[in-house]
Amino acid sequence: MTAATGMPLVAAAGPIGGLSYNTLVVLAGVATVGFAAGVAGTLALLRRRPLVGDAAAHATLLGVGAAFLLTGRRDLPTLLAGALVAAVAALVVLVFLRRIVRTRDDAATAIVIGVSFGAGLALLAGITARGLPGGAGLEQFLLGHTAALTAQDALLLAAASCATVTLVAVAFKELVLVAFDAPFAAAIGRPVGLIDTALVALVAVMVVVGLPAAGAVLVTALVVIPPVAARQWTTRAGRMLLLAGLFGLAAAVAGVLASTLRPGLATGPLVVLAAAAICFVSFAVAPERGWIWRRSRLRGGEASP
């Protein structure tokens, strides 16, 4: 399949380190995605809504399948546009369940994840079973498969990621204000609902953009794990943002590189494993909050403040 897209995984005559030009561009694009996912995820985590992205992510499969069926095309922009529509629709349903049907938060999220993901899987299975031309390979969006990306695809992903990072950087002060103390923000006249909607929209965009790298099932991890790891190292929101971005970038690059070792290897699990490794190390050795630090303090008998 990768051969069919005309992209050699490891080019013998690649310019740097045996990697082809295309692979390098893809790597750079996915690195940007990793950075932006960590940045957007930091704000979602601080607003205590880490799972919002999960509902959106699981719905994307349905959007990918629907976009293919409706347009008959399978280029990345078309499929991701479908994914974005589905992600936003899932979030609208989530809000509807919470506000109007008054379902508990976690129950509403579980319902949206289950139903939209099940429908997406069924749709893709149907497409595969009918053997529609070009339909094969859509299941790559389940677990991520960067090997199939073209340089042009990677540029699109990088552009969307840069837009996300820019928006977060510009609105950082307001986003942190609302995340920390929404009632106070409302009292000084900030439109809290609007800012929350913007944040959720940013997360939805990042989940869609992260789809080729991590897949519908695992892309949430790329949004949630780097910020959690970053929080271990710092007590300042600005530094946490930067660190989460760098952790996301490192995880994405590591995962993509690892996936080039063997043809047909899905990228998503590797990216997430890399992120988990960073997180584990952070839990263990970070000063103040890490296990080792806390244990040694207990043993030293030093009083905590």
């Binding site: 601080l46 205590r48 942190v176 920390f180 103390d181 009632p183 007590t235 300042r236 929101a237």
Partner: peptide, 9 residues
């Protein structure tokens, strides 16, 4: 109303 573990000074 706020989370005092929030990373701000």
């Amino acid at each position: 109303t706020v989370d005092w573990d929030f990373p701000v000074s």
